[in-house]
């Protein structure tokens, strides 16, 4: 029997997800043994035309990482959707937009202006920006369109499963691959990670006080965090309570608070809004009946850049999706 065909593709991403596949180490050999890789731009020399030549549904599963922010990415993921039985959104960017999704605080024009003109290391007095079409010596050159907005994969094509994480940890990848190969998959649309939030598995869980009230907010660079204590207890905002677990607590173990790369838990639509609610609920709540409106404002003001913090990974997947440009 022919081995199932598997494709890996990357869109707007950093390459970390590719590393994550390589990080399977010996297990990668098992995967390679069991499947037939038909597309993997970072490692193998297959082209778009090879995929186009396949029959619809010929690929058993496509693992697509990265968010969608260009015309080319949109075309490729639509092509892969057509050719694949299953599509797995691989990693934070495909799942919830990820770090590239922070570009949704701007639009194409403001990004181009910054990147191609205003950055101190760039000299571009004429203000020349990338064009979709340019004629050079009578020959028309084209570039794919750069969108105003970064999209999650499921905002562009139907996605069957999600493998969360920046990047997804090897154990979750192997579990997913094994489940696919054995045909033991959960309901379509599932996130292939535990349902509970990170606090469930956090090594500092027990240090968190039963009744937690944060008095002063501190940013990670302002303080050396106690490696045993719950970050929130120290006033360092940690997105763990609103973030799906399964990451292996890599950041926590490196003494850094969670920034939400696994996305919201099951049943939550907007991770950032949930975190807004939770943090505001426990921010300096002692004697709150005596707190004035102004004091509430100044408590809240302690949080610099709440949108950037609470939506660090999930802005494109949030209810608002992006900044509204005036």
């Amino acid at each position: 029997m022919a081995k199932p065909k598997v494709a890996f593709y990357w869109c707007a991403s950093c390459g970390g997800c590719e590393e994550a596949v390589v990080d399977l180490a010996e297990d990668l050999l098992k995967v390679v043994d069991a499947v037939d890789i038909v597309l993997w731009p970072v490692a193998l020399d297959f082209k778009r035309k090879d995929v186009e030549a396949m029959k619809d549904g010929a690929i058993a599963v496509s693992f697509i990482n990265g968010a969608v922010r260009t015309e080319e990415q949109e075309e490729m993921v639509k092509l892969l959707r057509k050719k694949s039985g299953l599509v797995v959104a691989f990693g934070s960017c495909a799942h919830i937009g990820g770090i590239p999704g922070l570009a949704n605080f701007w639009d194409r024009e403001t990004i181009f202006e910054r990147v191609y003109k205003d950055v101190p290391s760039v000299r571009n007095p004429e203000g020349i920006y990338p064009q979709q079409k340019t004629k050079v010596d009578g020959v028309e050159l084209t570039l794919p369109e750069f969108y105003d907005t970064v999209y999650t994969l499921d905002q562009v094509i139907n996605v069957d499963y999600y493998l969360p994480g920046c990047a997804p940890p090897p154990d979750l990848i192997m579990n997913a691959v094994t489940a696919i190969l054995e045909g033991k998959l959960p309901d379509k649309g599932s996130v292939l990670a535990p349902d509970k939030s990170l606090c469930d598995t956090c090594p500092r869980k027990d240090s968190k006080p039963e009744k937690l009230s944060i008095k002063a907010i501190r940013r990670p660079h302002e303080v050396i965090a106690d490696p045993e204590k719950c970050f929130l207890e120290e006033g360092i905002i940690c997105l763990g309570p609103a973030t799906r677990s399964g990451c292996g607590e890599r950041c926590i173990n490196a003494n850094m608070p969670c920034r939400g790369c696994f996305g919201p838990t099951k049943g939550v639509r907007d991770q950032g809004a949930k975190m807004v609610s939770a943090i505001a609920s426990i921010l300096g709540v002692e004697d709150e009946d005596k707190v004035t409106e102004e004091e509430v404002e100044s408590l809240v003001k302690q949080i610099d850049d709440p949108a950037g913090l609470f939506y660090m990974y999930s802005l494109p997947a949030s209810m608002l999706r992006r900044k509204r440009m005036g």
């Binding site: 509970k196 937690l212 309570p241 939770a278 609920s281 426990i282 709540v285």
Partner: peptide, 12 residues
């Protein structure tokens, strides 16, 4: 099955 024991609610 969803509660991670983050304790946010207890004080409230």
């Amino acid at each position: 099955d969803l509660c991670s024991g983050c304790k946010t609610c207890i004080l409230l």
